[in-house]
């Protein structure tokens, strides 16, 4: 199990500050939730964690690797599901997965073995030859998760992975990722703006206007009789 440590990270798009001096550590092997409304800076944070954007200040450590000093070793330990689907719709499920395995330099035999394993775990083994375009939103997300796990990462980042799914698919996806934490010891960072995706004992970070306004668990952040949405409203109001 490895953790993720973010220290002193700020990021600006020109004059617009998107993230301000973020400091946090994820709990290894747990489903860590990052809650924030649209525009809070969640996707910018994911872009920094995945090195799509360069750090402007501060540092990010994935396990023992600083993303500044050893970016390639750090990337090898991360699996990502982006908010916007990145599957090639015209290719089949297995062709998408093979492409990802090749990008990570996995030998073909090992790649085939892992593709079979991950698709079976996602209950998509029978659909491996179908074009991604033929799958529904929930299944596409499952393919993306299978893809993200092919190179055996220790840290799984999901950026609003449930966006656009119906409530049942959202719930199933959320439960599935939680199972991965238990079965594989994966450290998960699940970003969302939906309160019902966070459970009371999940390690929780609340991001608002680029600032981390609270950390703890949903239960520990709540005042008497509050649910998460009330806690969120109170905490973000104080921060504003």
């Amino acid at each position: 199990m490895i953790g993720l440590e973010v220290s002193g990270v700020s990021f600006a798009y020109g004059a617009r500050q998107a993230l301000v001096d973020l400091d946090f550590v994820l709990v290894p092997g747990r489903f860590n939730a990052l809650l924030g409304p649209n525009g809070a800076g969640k996707s910018t944070l994911i872009a920094l964690l995945t090195r799509l954007y360069d750090l402007q200040s501060g540092d990010i450590r994935i396990g023992a690797c600083s993303i500044r000093e050893k970016p390639r070793q750090a990337l090898a330990q991360i699996g990502v599901v982006f908010q916007q689907s990145t599957l090639d719709l015209d290719l089949s499920v297995e062709q998408n997965l093979r492409y990802h395995a090749a990008l990570h330099g996995l030998p073909r035999a090992l790649a085939e073995e892992r593709i079979a394993l991950e698709l079976a775990r996602q209950q998509l083994a029978e659909r491996r030859r179908e074009p991604v375009r033929a799958l529904n939103g929930g299944h596409r997300r499952r393919v993306e998760i299978a893809r993200a796990l092919l190179h055996k990462p220790q840290l799984l980042l999901l950026d609003e992975a449930s966006a656009g799914l119906d409530p049942a698919s959202r719930q199933a996806l959320n439960a599935h990722v939680r199972r991965l934490c238990v079965e594989d010891g994966l450290t998960v960072l699940w970003t969302t703006h939906l309160f019902d995706e966070v459970q009371a004992d999940d390690p929780l970070l609340i991001l608002h206007r680029g600032r981390l306004v609270a950390r703890g668990t949903a239960a520990s952040l709540a005042e008497a009789g509050e649910d998460l949405s009330a806690s969120f409203a109170r905490l973000t109001e104080v921060a504003a």
């Binding site: 995945t50 799509l52 390639r72 990337l75 492409y99 990802h100 990008l103 990570h104 330099g105």
Partner: peptide, 9 residues
């Protein structure tokens, strides 16, 4: 993004 998530240079 898929391409850029490769750990290769």
């Amino acid at each position: 993004r898929v391409l850029l998530m490769s750990p290769l240079p």
